[in-house]
């Protein structure tokens, strides 16, 4: 039963694991740059969920040509295209803030920053 689910729902379990890895990095990594990487891993996990939902057996990419069907669903692809671009914008802003924090405090270590903040 469990093995059965694993062979038919494998991508969804990968989604859960990617979300977990991303969350762990965001919470646990002391380095601010690595926290941004964790945020991106979390994001990609959600992308995998959407793209997997759009897939259908024997489906072709949604480029409409005579007699090429069936196609996978185009709508989740569009949403994820938008999300990828928004994700890059988010990363750019986050990294700019990281660089700014470094130029103000001279460290990227979370614990050191907290100490500096309390002093």
């Amino acid at each position: 039963m469990t093995l059965d689910l694993l062979t038919t729902h494998y991508n969804y379990y990968a989604v859960a694991l990617l979300l977990g890895i991303g969350l762990y990095t965001v919470i646990e990594s002391p380095n601010l740059v690595k926290k941004v990487i964790g945020m991106n891993v979390f994001q990609t996990g959600i992308f995998l969920f959407f793209i997997t939902l759009a897939f259908r057996n024997g489906g072709n990419p949604p480029v409409i040509t005579e007699g090429a069907g069936p196609y996978v669903s185009p709508l989740p692809h569009v949403l994820i295209l938008t999300a990828i671009v928004v994700g890059v914008s988010l990363t750019a802003v986050a990294l700019a803030l990281v660089v700014r924090v470094y130029s103000e405090y001279g460290t990227l270590d979370e614990d050191t920053l907290e100490q500096l903040y309390h002093d």
């Binding site: 897939f55 990419p61 996978v72």
Partner: peptide
């Protein structure tokens, strides 16, 4: 690509 989403 494997999931048939070449644009993505």
């Amino acid at each position: 690509l494997v999931l048939q989403a070449p644009d993505v």
